[in-house]
């Protein structure tokens, strides 16, 4: 377990590499998901508008 944390003395390089990768990909995922939900909501709102007001 201790070996896992210290990474043979390279913890200062190994963990940031994984941390930054995970964080960047997660943020990218959130942004892309947000974009998608926004697009969906906009289209749904327009479709209701279309149906209610002829």
């Amino acid at each position: 377990m201790n070996d896992f944390i210290t990474q043979g003395g390279f913890a200062a390089y190994v963990w940031p590499a994984y941390g930054i990768s995970a964080l960047a990909l997660a943020l990218l995922g959130f942004w892309i998901g947000h974009e998608y939900r926004q697009a969906k909501a906009k289209l749904a709102a327009l479709a209701t508008l279309e149906r209610d007001a002829p």
Binding site: L28, G29, I32, G33, E35, Y36, Q38, A39, K40, K42, L43, L46, A47, E50
Partner: peptide, 22 residues
Amino acid sequence: FWTIRIRSEILNRRARTLLEMR
């Protein structure tokens, strides 16, 4: 990621077409 972004853009363009039609 790529697939979802393409889907978002298709939806955005549909919305724009709807607006232009109105």
